[in-house]
Design a binder for these strands. Structure first.
Lengths: 144, 144
DNA sequence: ATATGTGCAAATGGTTTGCAAATGG
DNA sequence: CCATTTGCAAACCATTTGCACATAT
């Protein structure tokens, strides 16, 4: 991802946040930037640690609250099991595969599983937004 | 489900536990019976409450430990997010659909999603036992 | 007999909350 | 300005753990 693309994504996200009537704060900006750079999913703890590099005074509660707001607005999603919730950006459509043992996450581009999603929706009445489908299984390392 | 079927499932489960070198204890028996009766998924707290009816001295830590062992042996699975993990029997093949908002769970009989599972496995290298595929979305009530 | 499981009580650790001060629009 | 957000400190609550005793096989 080029620096330009990254700027574009960042601005698009910022505008979405503002359009929702939220404020574009230091915490949100820093979290989104961190997630843009990470190209993966991070835990609240990892994010907080990353924050303290640039913003040593930022509290973990701030991280949690900002993440909660971003999740409510569909900017990020949270996934994973008890004690190891992970957060990732939601602006590029994809699905998740979560290892129930170690919590690692892989991504599947949206579209690849279209049939699956449709089948699951029609059978259960549950709705899966394009970005929010999450499968739980075991990764290669934990499959033993 | 008739009482006979229930007995059969119970015995099959007990034998699986023993074959794994585990002991068939009061806690495990009571938990499995409760789950057999519940025909759904229960939280650790709900299970512990149910236990105290017949076994007032049984501690929550015992419930957790027994559930953990049963999960390791594939007798039950745990699913759901932080703070509202749910447990259900795994002896009848099915998949789960979990609402990320309220934590409610619906089931999909195994087989219905066979293609889906295969696609997800080949793409990610993750493995999904027939019983352990879990999808996360939003239930009808929470879909707003 | 002996590894496995249990009860109890205390710790752990991720997540949430109340409140006064700071900040974004 | 004024609602939203933040820092701080403390509370919360599900889950885990250490240890001595009990139980299943």
């Amino acid at each position: 991802m080029t620096g330009q693309e990254r700027q574009r994504r960042l601005h698009r996200i910022r505008d979405r946040v503002r359009r929702r009537g939220r404020r574009w704060t230091v915490a949100k900006a820093a979290l989104v930037e961190e997630l843009l750079g990470a190209s993966g999913h991070l835990s609240a703890r990892e994010l907080h640690e990353a924050m303290t590099a640039q913003h040593p005074q930022m509290d973990h509660s701030t991280v949690y609250r900002a993440l909660h707001i971003l999740a409510e607005d569909g900017i990020v999603h949270s996934l994973g099991g008890p004690g190891h919730t992970l957060f990732g950006l939601a602006d590029e459509p994809h699905h998740h595969v979560v290892c129930g043992v170690c919590g690692s996450v892989a991504e599947i581009p949206a579209g690849d599983l279209g049939d699956l999603v449709a089948a699951a929706e029609s059978r259960t009445g549950y709705s899966f937004s394009a970005q929010s489908l999450t499968l739980a299984g075991r990764c290669v390392a934990c499959a033993g």
